[in-house]
Amino acid sequence: MTATLTIGLARASLETKLFFRQRDAVIFTFSFPIILLVLFGSIFEGDLEGTGITVAQLYSAGLIGAGVMGVAFQNLAIGIAIDRDDGTLKRLAGTPMPRAAYFVGKLVSSLVLSAIEVALLLAVAVLLFDLELPTDVTRWATLVWVLTLGLAGAALLGIAVSSLPRNAKSAAAVVSMPYVLLQFISGVYIPFTELPSWLNDVAALFPLKWMCQGLRSVFLGDAGAALELTGSYELPKVALVLGLWLVGGLVLCLATFRWTNRGES
């Protein structure tokens, strides 16, 4: 167990180092949600139904969720598909490295990258769009647990999805589609009040909608609760669904993970 953890942390530092050495990937992964935030925040001005909440603030909350999912789900899933294709996984499987250490490394490095992403998005939202940072401890605590649970769920989903693409070349296409779709139906870009109810039901099955809802509770405050479909942020339900994804994602990973490309075992 200790070996898994120490080697896992060594892998996390290696993975993070590798990520930052691919400068193009760094720039695109981090800047994508920031550019969208600046774009949407500049296009849609004004308040929402007299609540005193601006559209930019709403997008800030949504894009923090999408940004975390971009790192923990998209970046992770594509990264693993590449590891499977270029021989990283096969080489590791031939060493005495505890196999769980690979996942510890991926999760911890996703956590580090997500933390950077959230900090950048918060800085932009506060500086440009008057997003107010929470002032009480409860809200900060909510932010931490929503992000941690959401990130873990998204990462496990990413690990499971990484087994879908046949090889690294198709990985970006295969992984990006569910990510983009989820953003559209989970209230990141389009207000969920404008979606048909069956689409909202579909979105409710996946973690992104709940992560964004939890984030809105942190950044939009009590005034924003009226904008929710149920008139409440439903935090216990947020915790429940994200927690279920954690368990379900873990089971899915264990059942589907492959250490080689399809047809090679």
């Binding site: 290696l14 180092k17 590798l18 050495r21 590891d83 270029d86 021989g87 990283t88 080489r91």
Partner: peptide, 13 residues
Amino acid sequence: GIVLQTANDAAEL
């Protein structure tokens, strides 16, 4: 010890 035929990993390390 195993030396595989094709490996292109860890290029940036």
